[in-house]
Design a protein around this nucleic acid. Structure first.
Lengths: 189, 189
DNA sequence: GTAGTTTTTGACCTAGAAGTACAATACCAC
DNA sequence: GTGGTATTGTACTTCTAGGTCAAAAACTAC
């Protein structure tokens, strides 16, 4: 009972994620969030405890999405190489918008001072690394990749690269360069 | 003529850099800056036009420092490999403090919205990449590194890796892991 | 010492960020 | 339709970030 909510919480979180992605945490005001989600500030604070809480939910949702995408991508059989390239391109945000990765932005902006952000970033990064490790191991077993370096080590390198690329994607330079870097890395496996 | 300044501008900029490094741009208030530099807010704004201007100076100084360090490091003769490892460890801020790189933080926090930050970050990254390229090329000529991948491509990969590592350094996980990643990358050349 | 500069200090100002309060609204149960 | 409950919109409050200002202080030139 009571008046029904006029918006869906999940889509609201998605829209908030979008804003935080483009403008950063400090750079996004409650007013902008309310307008962006198409609701009033009252509803905003009635639904989400605080700006920070909403930010954490957005990051959580982002993590889920990314992991879901990765799991789907690598669950099918077939050659790993092209899919690994695709995964890196998507995770680094090298697509049209060139906006990098929210989680990387969050970690860089707040990592040193905000433990909660730190934890969720660490969690996502660790999971991504695990997916990479499995994918590489699979590629090595099938003979697609060389086995002279351990999957563990390679996964760490891939993770670092993808994070670095997500920063470079935003910073500038022509977009194709980064595609070449991805190719170089993955073709070297 | 006039009252002499009670502090050195350069050391003030250094201290400001330190604060921005630890707390980010938005996370550092003028009051903290004044206290941190050991001066009053009046002097702060008398010497530096604005918080943003001071930030840019801090980033500029950081860039100079880093490039000076790199140039010195690679100007001497001898094997490249250990020095490349050292450079990456330092640039990624993998040392004791594990605080990453200010420029990476700045790019991630403000890159999308602040063109000036974007430009200076792009500039530093480009220069670092150039140093890497030269170092790799030198290592290839001397036979220390394999020549089956171009120095250009490798430099891009090293740059992306070092940026990624600087994010990971802050985010968490045991420190040694990252040393292993650096070793893995550089030993693979 | 005095005049002329420039710096310093800290109180002061203003805008807007973050969050709250509350009346109006929209539903359900009966 | 009445009572109870939950949501909505908006005006309001609080606080602080970012910056300014005026008067005192510290110098140089004469």
């Amino acid at each position: 009972m009571g008046r029904p909510m006029q918006f869906e919480t999940d889509t609201a979180v998605d829209k908030a994620m979008e804003l935080f992605w483009r403008q950063g945490y400090a750079g996004t005001t409650p007013q902008e969030l309310a307008s962006g989600l198409g609701i009033g500030k009252g509803s905003l604070y009635n639904t989400f405890e605080s700006k920070h809480a909403l930010f954490m939910r957005a990051l959580g949702r982002y993590s889920e999405r990314r992991l879901e995408y990765l799991t789907d991508l690598f669950s099918a059989p077939g050659p790993i190489r092209p899919r690994l390239k695709g995964a890196m391109t998507v995770l680094a945000g090298l697509g049209e918008h060139r906006r990098g990765c929210v989680m990387v932005n969050a970690a860089a902006e707040l990592g040193t001072t905000d433990d909660e952000v730190n934890r969720i970033a660490d969690h996502l990064f660790t999971q991504i690394e695990a997916v990479f490790r499995q994918a590489v191991a699979q590629g090595q077993e099938s003979g697609e990749f060389s086995i002279d370096r351990g999957a563990e080590t390679i996964a760490g390198q891939l993770l670092a690269s993808v994070i670095g690329l997500s920063v470079l994607a935003k910073t500038g330079g022509p977009g194709e360069r980064f595609g070449a870097v991805v190719d170089g890395i993955v073709d070297g496996l």
